[in-house]
Protein backbone atom coordinates (compact mmCIF):
# COMPACT_ATOMS: atom_id res chain seq x y z
CA UNK A 1 0.00 0.00 0.00
CA UNK A 2 1.24 3.44 -0.84
CA UNK A 3 -0.25 6.87 -0.62
CA UNK A 4 -0.05 9.42 -3.39
CA UNK A 5 -0.49 13.06 -2.49
CA UNK A 6 -2.14 15.40 -4.96
CA UNK A 7 -1.77 19.06 -4.19
CA UNK A 8 -4.11 21.52 -5.94
CA UNK A 9 -3.89 25.31 -5.68
CA UNK A 10 -5.96 28.15 -7.14
CA UNK A 11 -4.21 29.62 -10.19
CA UNK A 12 -1.96 32.56 -9.25
CA UNK A 13 -4.03 34.97 -11.36
CA UNK A 14 -7.31 33.89 -9.72
CA UNK A 15 -8.29 35.81 -6.64
CA UNK A 16 -8.61 33.34 -3.76
CA UNK A 17 -11.44 34.65 -1.55
CA UNK A 18 -10.96 31.97 1.12
CA UNK A 19 -7.23 32.59 1.42
CA UNK A 20 -7.93 36.32 1.59
CA UNK A 21 -10.39 35.83 4.45
CA UNK A 22 -7.96 33.62 6.36
CA UNK A 23 -5.23 36.21 5.77
CA UNK A 24 -7.47 38.92 7.20
CA UNK A 25 -8.30 36.82 10.27
CA UNK A 26 -4.67 36.11 11.22
CA UNK A 27 -3.71 39.58 12.54
CA UNK A 28 -6.99 39.75 14.45
CA UNK A 29 -5.75 36.74 16.43
CA UNK A 30 -2.31 38.27 16.88
CA UNK A 31 -0.50 36.36 14.12
CA UNK A 32 1.35 39.28 12.58
CA UNK A 33 3.78 39.45 9.70
CA UNK A 34 1.98 37.10 7.31
CA UNK A 35 1.72 38.99 4.06
CA UNK A 36 -0.58 36.65 2.10
CA UNK A 37 -2.50 33.41 2.42
CA UNK A 38 -3.62 31.21 -0.42
CA UNK A 39 -5.71 28.15 0.29
CA UNK A 40 -5.53 24.98 -1.74
CA UNK A 41 -6.56 21.35 -1.51
CA UNK A 42 -4.61 18.25 -0.62
CA UNK A 43 -5.82 14.80 -1.64
CA UNK A 44 -4.39 11.55 -0.28
CA UNK A 45 -4.95 8.65 -2.65
CA UNK A 46 -4.14 5.23 -1.22
CA UNK A 47 -3.45 2.60 -3.87
CA UNK A 48 -3.25 -1.18 -3.67
CA UNK A 49 0.09 -2.65 -4.67
CA UNK A 50 3.04 -0.90 -6.23
CA UNK A 51 3.03 2.56 -7.67
CA UNK A 52 4.05 1.83 -11.25
CA UNK A 53 4.51 4.50 -13.92
CA UNK A 54 1.09 3.49 -15.19
CA UNK A 55 -0.55 4.01 -11.80
CA UNK A 56 1.15 7.37 -11.43
CA UNK A 57 0.12 8.45 -14.94
CA UNK A 58 -3.43 7.46 -14.10
CA UNK A 59 -3.39 9.51 -10.90
CA UNK A 60 -1.95 12.51 -12.76
CA UNK A 61 -4.77 12.25 -15.26
CA UNK A 62 -7.32 12.04 -12.44
CA UNK A 63 -5.69 15.06 -10.80
CA UNK A 64 -6.02 17.08 -13.98
CA UNK A 65 -9.55 16.02 -14.90
CA UNK A 66 -11.51 15.48 -11.67
CA UNK A 67 -9.47 16.64 -8.67
CA UNK A 68 -8.76 20.03 -10.22
CA UNK A 69 -10.54 22.30 -12.66
CA UNK A 70 -7.86 23.62 -15.05
CA UNK A 71 -9.83 26.84 -15.56
CA UNK A 72 -9.28 27.93 -11.96
CA UNK A 73 -6.76 25.54 -10.43
CA UNK A 74 -3.28 24.10 -10.97
CA UNK A 75 -2.06 20.68 -9.90
CA UNK A 76 1.17 21.80 -8.23
CA UNK A 77 2.35 18.45 -6.93
CA UNK A 78 1.76 14.72 -7.36
CA UNK A 79 3.98 12.86 -4.94
CA UNK A 80 4.29 9.23 -3.81
CA UNK A 81 4.48 8.74 -0.09
CA UNK A 82 5.25 5.20 0.99
CA UNK A 83 4.26 3.78 4.33
CA UNK A 84 6.64 4.84 7.10
CA UNK A 85 8.28 7.74 5.30
CA UNK A 86 6.84 11.10 4.55
CA UNK A 87 9.47 12.12 1.99
CA UNK A 88 8.81 15.72 2.85
CA UNK A 89 12.47 16.55 3.45
CA UNK A 90 13.67 17.04 7.01
CA UNK A 91 11.67 15.72 9.90
CA UNK A 92 10.82 18.89 11.70
CA UNK A 93 12.06 18.01 15.15
CA UNK A 94 11.31 21.43 16.53
CA UNK A 95 9.26 21.95 19.62
CA UNK A 96 5.68 21.04 19.03
CA UNK A 97 6.42 19.01 15.94
CA UNK A 98 3.74 16.45 15.29
CA UNK A 99 3.99 13.73 12.70
CA UNK A 100 2.21 14.66 9.52
CA UNK A 101 -0.58 12.28 8.49
CA UNK A 102 1.56 10.99 5.64
CA UNK A 103 3.92 9.44 8.17
CA UNK A 104 1.99 6.27 7.64
CA UNK A 105 -0.87 4.10 8.66
CA UNK A 106 0.61 3.32 12.07
CA UNK A 107 0.46 6.95 13.11
CA UNK A 108 -3.06 7.32 11.85
CA UNK A 109 -4.23 4.25 13.71
CA UNK A 110 -2.43 5.30 16.90
Amino acid sequence: MATILVHVMPKPEILDPQGKAVGAALPRLGFDGIAQVRQGKRFELTVDGEVTDEVLANVRKAAETLLSNPVIEDVVQVKVVREGGCGCGGNGGGKGHRPAPENGAKDLLG
Partner: peptide, 17 residues
Amino acid sequence: LTEVHLLPGSMIKNEHL
Protein backbone atom coordinates in the same frame (compact mmCIF):
# COMPACT_ATOMS: atom_id res chain seq x y z
CA LEU B 1 -22.43 23.12 -17.54
CA THR B 2 -19.00 24.70 -17.01
CA GLU B 3 -17.59 21.58 -15.34
CA VAL B 4 -18.78 19.45 -18.27
CA HIS B 5 -17.29 22.02 -20.71
CA LEU B 6 -20.51 22.89 -22.50
CA LEU B 7 -19.82 26.47 -21.40
CA PRO B 8 -16.42 28.10 -20.79
CA GLY B 9 -15.10 29.51 -17.52
CA SER B 10 -15.92 28.52 -13.97
CA MET B 11 -17.44 29.79 -10.73
CA ILE B 12 -15.47 30.39 -7.55
CA LYS B 13 -16.53 31.65 -4.11
CA ASN B 14 -18.16 35.06 -4.00
CA GLU B 15 -15.53 37.78 -3.68
CA HIS B 16 -16.91 38.89 -0.30
CA LEU B 17 -17.41 35.27 0.87
